[in-house]
Design a protein around this nucleic acid. Structure first.
Lengths: 276, 276
DNA sequence: TTGCTCCTCACGTCACGTGAGGTGGC
DNA sequence: TTGCTCCTCACGTCACGTGAGGTGGC
């Protein structure tokens, strides 16, 4: 009995608030060593103090409670360490994005965006090998990497090579709802066999207003904005998914400042009769 | 009309989701240039696109919506820049705390805490000059700095000097409820005149179990835990606020690893008859 | 016995997302 | 006219915090 702490003392011992401790009990994340059946009083053992400290540090690192539970429940050390390492990797990603966002904010507050040229182009039908899935905006980057790697591997296995830069067809819902269908593709000379997620896909012809975005994708919304303003100004809007082409991307250089991304926004064909 | 965008096109232009845009409209943060009275359809002007980009970047930096509104509404450039600089400073603080938390997590997972000695001491009454306020746990650090600076300035103005290290008396509620009364004090030879927030305060005598925490305060919960386990083991618990003394702190060295903080936990007097 | 600690329960907060059910615009 | 876009409204989510109203322990 002498080694049990009331919730208030346990709060002082761990620097977790009483409300937080009750919340963790409700969720089964940090269950008191004993609970008085008559009064409902929670009693924590001194052995639980280091557990509280660990939980607090994971929360300081924004780890979701469900994931903390997974770490605490991990059977063996390797799987526990894997979960932690994965979270630290996500955290580092977040820190990098924060640094980029600060730089990008300074940029945007300094002045108007660099006025990139917008041109119109008739895109013919295109033979490709593609992976199509519904993706959350938050998960885009790792999904995209994996898909593109798989496409290159698929071509290599069939002794084929891409006959142009990689690209993507992005459903409207991806922007308006934060998740939607995306196809990542590599253009091919021939129709390739389907392997794994990769399937042959022929992109339909389309009329596009295109802009080339220079640099990292943290800023890519500015090029989308320029394109949207252009299309709105000309009243050229027509439905259909957006296109992206990665003229220079992560496979060519790790220097994000050197990336070149073409964005294509579907429009009416200029000078042609509008569809009735 | 040709320069107005439907909400879906504005979402594509800014990479803010439609749900998010409607939310910002409800809050008055980003109000459409026009709203159709019959249908409720929102129309955004192309001039609003850069505003959307700015809002998105502030959100990427975790700026609360109310604060973003304050930035957008700022009348002059200096006050706008001040709000932004303040947020960036907070952000940098958060990044530093994240780095510390990662290091501290590695520490705690490596092994048991360094077993610091716990001793008992009778603390006599102490004449001090102090600032007492109710503080949120999240605001502790800047509040503490400001209060301590003010105390030193108060003494200097009266040609006095502290006769011992700075300390604090911390109400239990500060730990259990995340906010509570704190007094920061400097011990004085004489009773000083009250100036500003600083008033003369005589601390009552108290029996303490004390531990000395070595290093930065990100880890201080571990020393609190060791102390709590000791007190629980001896069944020595008695009410009353905690004491801290800053033997070596931020005024002595900016190398946080060299800090030494004494934590005092009120206990029964060992070997003395318990109060009846 | 007093006063503090502890209890539950319902609701609030922040920044949206989900989903139902329905209407408008090209 | 069809089908897509857009609308509102109510509720859900995450990790707690607030506050009411009440009981238990030293």
């Amino acid at each position: 009995v002498s080694d049990l702490l009331a919730i208030g003392d346990f709060a002082r011992a761990t620097h977790l608030s009483v409300k937080t401790l009750r919340h963790y009990h409700d969720l089964g994340l940090l269950v008191p060593a004993s609970v008085d059946v008559r009064s409902g009083y929670r009693r924590y053992s001194t052995e639980q103090i280091p557990v509280g400290h660990v939980v607090r540090r994971f929360r300081d690192l924004d780890m979701p409670l469900e994931q903390i539970r997974a770490v605490l429940d991990a059977r063996d050390l390797p799987s526990r360490n894997r979960l932690i390492a994965e979270h630290l990797a996500r955290l580092e990603d977040a820190l990098n994005r924060t640094h980029s966002a600060v730089a990008s904010l300074r940029d945007i507050l300094q002045g108007p965006p660099p006025a990139a040229a917008i041109r119109h182009r008739s895109e013919p039908a295109l033979q490709t090998v593609a992976i199509s899935e519904t993706v959350e905006a938050a998960d885009l980057s790792p999904w995209f990497q994996g898909a593109l790697d798989e496409l290159h591997a698929t071509l290599a296995a069939q002794d084929e090579a891409a006959v142009g830069p990689a690209g993507a067809v992005v459903d409207d819902a991806f922007f308006t709802d934060e998740h939607g269908a995306i196809s990542v593709y590599l253009p091919t000379a021939r129709r390739v066999r389907a392997v794994g997620r990769a399937v042959a896909l022929t992109l339909p012809p389309v009329e596009l207003a295109v802009i080339v975005h220079e640099g990292s994708h943290v800023d890519i919304d500015r090029s989308y904005g320029a394109l949207a303003a252009h299309v709105a100004h000309g009243a050229l809007s027509v439905g259909g998914p957006l296109r992206e082409r990665y003229l220079v991307g992560g496979r060519e250089t790790t220097v994000a400042a050197d990336w070149r991304t073409e964005i294509g926004w579907p429009v009416f064909r200029v000078g042609a009769p509008r569809p009735t």
